[in-house]
């Protein structure tokens, strides 16, 4: 018989090995989860380091409010459950602030905002979709109805790739379900690979993300097409995702982000990584 007393040291070792993911005390160190596959917001360099707009921005903001920030790579699929399970303290992964996400987590103020659109191959029949380049707000019902009516004949029976659990997937499911076949991918990089391979006819993501796609190998064969969607279920731009219980951390990061926006740091970083300014209105 194994005595319970013999098991106790083993249990103690197991507990000691377990890492406390976060402390509730006053914030000194923040662990931030990012996907590392959503260039140029966040990506892996060949030496394995995480780089990108959000990494630069986090380092800047953390310095302003005296925090040590550490990034961990985490699959997009499950990034919110991981936050609520306490595996890390914050999410910076090009995540848009939406009503649906606000039901389970909290967000700081937005730090970037860019519209959503389609990417297609240049020789595709979808290369010149109706309303290309026209801004359409999902809040404007008349404009949205018109856009859907214009797009429906072109998209009928086509396959569209989109990353799972994104505002773009919501957009397709809400407005184009039944018109097109929607195929969901774990990462945006994978729907790009399938767009280039010809398995999907178009991919839907944010224009800022596609900016980096078009500059990658093979990207010169692709182009953006269709309207630039904003508003509504697409949310109010991307913010730092936080647990609802961490109001103190939210206050700190909001302060840092507001400062970074006010003195033009966000604009500078945006120009560095996106070549365009996607800083949100203050």
């Amino acid at each position: 018989m194994v005595k319970i007393s013999r098991l106790l040291p083993a249990l103690a070792v197991a507990v000691a090995l377990a890492v406390p993911a976060a402390q509730a005390k006053d914030w000194k160190k923040v662990v931030i989860a990012t996907e590392g596959a959503y260039a140029p917001y966040n990506m892996h360099a060949p030496d394995g380091k995480l780089i990108g707009f959000e990494i630069d921005l986090a380092l800047d903001v953390c310095k302003r409010v005296n925090l040590t920030c550490e990034f961990v790579a985490q699959d997009w699929n499950g990034i919110i459950p991981g936050l609520n399970a306490g595996k890390y303290d914050a999410i910076m992964s090009g995540m848009s602030i939406t009503a649906k996400r606000l039901e389970v987590i909290d967000f700081t103020r937005p730090y970037s905002n860019s519209p959503t659109t389609f990417a297609v191959m240049k020789e595709s029949p979808l290369a010149a979709m109706p309303d290309s380049g026209v801004r359409v707000s999902l809040d404007d019902k008349a404009a949205m109805d018109k856009a859907i009516k214009d797009l429906a004949p072109a998209l009928k029976g086509k396959v569209i790739g989109v990353q799972v659990s994104t505002i773009q997937a919501d957009l397709l499911n809400t407005y184009f379900k039944g018109v097109t076949e929607i195929r969901t991918y774990p990462t945006t990089e994978e729907h790009d690979l399938d767009l280039q391979a010809g398995r999907v006819d178009a991919a839907l993501a944010s224009t800022s993300y596609f900016a980096s796609t078009l500059s990658k190998p093979g990207g010169d064969q692709m182009k953006l097409s269709g309207p630039l969607f904003t508003g509504g279920l697409l949310g109010k731009g991307t913010g730092i995702g936080l647990r609802k219980s961490d109001a103190d951390l939210k206050a700190l990061l909001d302060k840092g982000l507001n400062e970074a926006l006010a003195d033009g740091t966000i604009k500078t970083l945006s120009l560095k990584w996106f070549k365009v300014d996607i800083s949100p209105p203050s």
Partner: peptide, 23 residues
């Protein structure tokens, strides 16, 4: 499911992406 097929696991990822209740 990793190549976009919606069998049992694929559907479970989709449900998690809507409800965020993984466990």
């Amino acid at each position: 499911s990793i190549v976009t097929l919606m069998e049992v696991s694929g559907i479970s990822y989709a449900i998690i992406s809507e409800t965020y209740r993984a466990l």
